[in-house]
Each structure stands twice: as structure tokens, then as C-alpha cells.
Simulated scan of single mutants.
Amino acid sequence: MARCMLAAAAALIAAPVAAQEMPPLVSAYARQLAEQCGPLPPGATTLNLVDRVDLNGDKLDDWVIDASRYPCPGRPALAVSAGALVTVFKGIDSGMAIPAFQRTGFGSRLQRAPDGSSSLWISLGGSDCGDTKPETRCERRVIWRTAEGRFDAVAAEVKTAASR
């Protein structure tokens, strides 16, 4: 059993970031996810489970863990339809990171801007999209609110003819 959990944890953090490169809290969170899910099915991969990216422009690595990217054989089908946690750890000095944002979503993606900066987009549902239907989906961009010192998910800017 312990070997299976270790194998799952190793697979979880093998790509794209090695475990020794992660701050302790990020690594512990990834291990906890692997332990909750159980061993991976044969041939399953965990590509891009952990993203390392500067999301707030402070020149420090922030860390994104999207639990929906982990093939979790122990997760009941009902839980899959309810979404999975997307967690952002904000990088701080000395190579550490602290939890700074967490939302139940239906996947996430990084988008690189022409200036080289990166944005995190998260797919949300229901009331997070301004709808009462839980099956409604929308994309929200995760931004850094400097004045409040926190990340937040906001609707994409809609360009009108007057603002172009």
C-alpha cells in the first residue's frame, strides 16, 4: 500500500516540475492529492498537474495545482460532475509558497501574452457564472488584486465596438 502511494506521489509530481523543485507546502499538497486518489491506473499520466508560473508580476514563482488533471480512480462520478479544486500557491521570498487562491472548477489553462506575462484561466460553473443552473460553464481569469493582496477570479473583458 505504501509503495502504491509513493508511486502515485512520484507520478503526480514528475511532470512538469520535479518534487525537489517545489516549495514544501506545494509538494505536501500534491502528495495529499495522490494519497486521497490512490494508485494511478496502468499507463495513466499526470501531465501538467503542477504549473510553475509568475501570475502576479513579482518575479517569484507561483504554483498552480489543478486536481482535475489527476486521473483519480477513487473519485466517484458524482464528484467529477461537481468539479475539482484549482489551487494557487503564491511564491514568497526564500523559495517558499503559501496558499493564496482556491476554487472548485472544471479545468484550468495558462495563457501567455505577447509581453511574456502569463494568465491563469479557470472554467467555473453555476453561480460563479451568474446563473442558477449548476451545469452552466464560463471562463474566468485569475488576477492579482494588489490593494487587497490576493488573487481573484474575474469575468473576461468584453470588447465592444466603442472600446476597440
Rank of each mutant, 00 (worst) to 15 (best):
P24D: 13
D66W: 05
G57I: 04
L85E: 13
K133D: 15
S117L: 12
Q111R: 15
T160H: 13
A14R: 15
G95E: 01
C138S: 08
E139R: 11
S117P: 07
C37I: 07
I98L: 10
G38I: 02
R141K: 14
A19D: 09
G105P: 00
D51V: 03
R31M: 04
A15Y: 14
L124M: 11
R75I: 05
L60M: 13
A67L: 04
A161G: 08
G149S: 04
W144K: 06
E148M: 07
L47R: 14
D62M: 04
A162G: 08
Q36P: 06
Q36H: 10
S94V: 08
L124D: 00
G83L: 02
L124S: 02
A2P: 03
A10L: 07
Q36K: 10
D128V: 04
G74I: 06
C138Y: 05
A30L: 07
A28E: 06
G126C: 07
E157N: 10
D54E: 09
D54V: 12
D128P: 03
G74H: 07
A156W: 07
L49A: 07
N56S: 12
M5S: 04
E135H: 12
A84H: 12
D131R: 15
M5D: 03
L78A: 14
A77E: 11
T132F: 14
R75K: 15
W63F: 09
S127R: 14
D51C: 05
A147M: 06
N48M: 08
I98F: 04
K159L: 15
C4R: 10
A11L: 09
C37D: 02
F89E: 01
L40M: 07
V88E: 02
E35A: 13
D54A: 12
T87N: 02
T146A: 14
D115E: 12
Y70I: 03
P73G: 13
Q32N: 12
G57A: 09
R145G: 04
T87F: 01
R3C: 01
A147H: 09
